[in-house]
Amino acid sequence: MGTLKHYADRFAPLLAFVGVLLAWEAACRLFAIPAFVLPAPSAVIASTTEIGAGRWVQHLLATVQIALIGYLVAILLALPLAVMITHSRLLSRTLLPWLIIIQSTPIVAIAPIIVVTLGAGMLPRVVITTLIAFFPLVIATATGLASVPDELLELSRSLRASRSREYWQIRMPYAVPHIFSALKVAITLAVIGAVVAEFVAAEVGLGYLILFATSTFKVPMAFAALTLLVACSLLLYGVIVLAQRLLCPWSLGKEAGQ
């Protein structure tokens, strides 16, 4: 019984996944659901041969490239902004309303405007991706920088250490767990941003491919692109989780460290 339970525990998620796929396949065949309503998994797989592997890689890389560049720009913008917000009350009061306005603007609504303003090409796509990814980073980093216990700041003051050392040796490391949480949220947001940008103006990328495929009723291919997009998002998320485990193992919670 013990080993059975052990195996059940281990393979339950995989079995559930396979089960859902089989049920989906069976439902599509049994009820003869048309492919443009809900394509069967087998049809989705078959559709991948409609364009060459080289084209798939091209679309995938285009999306990943935009997502990663936007993500990096978001990080480079967010960290100094967070420091400014925690450093001065005046800056915090000046900057925060703008950040909240930017965050409250629906990215899908502003994307076409950005494309018109900045033209076609990579720039508007990166800007759209950055806009959606940077807000959680700023807020989480600022929260982390401010989460340092008062007593530690008093220790720093009692040593007459400089403000820059206070930031580099105490506040920044303290913010690391917060920053990593935000990095995980932001990477999935960056993928969303890249796809939204591709919906508006692009001639390559998985977002473009989904738009193109659905406009010609190639729904199985759209599903294939969607699957690839989800896999890509999960993979990038996994990279961040791995980076945290390797670079800052102390920042993981107790239960995660076991």
């Binding site: 220790l155 105490i170 490391p173």
Partner: peptide, 26 residues
């Protein structure tokens, strides 16, 4: 030298580096 109510050690440094932290910080 000051000792506070809570230990306020830095979780990312080992014990030895925590003890020498005031030097590095100052």
């Amino acid at each position: 030298g000051v000792v506070f109510q809570k230990p306020t050690l830095l979780p990312w440094l080992n014990v030895l580096d925590n003890i020498t932290f005031p030097m590095r910080h100052k």
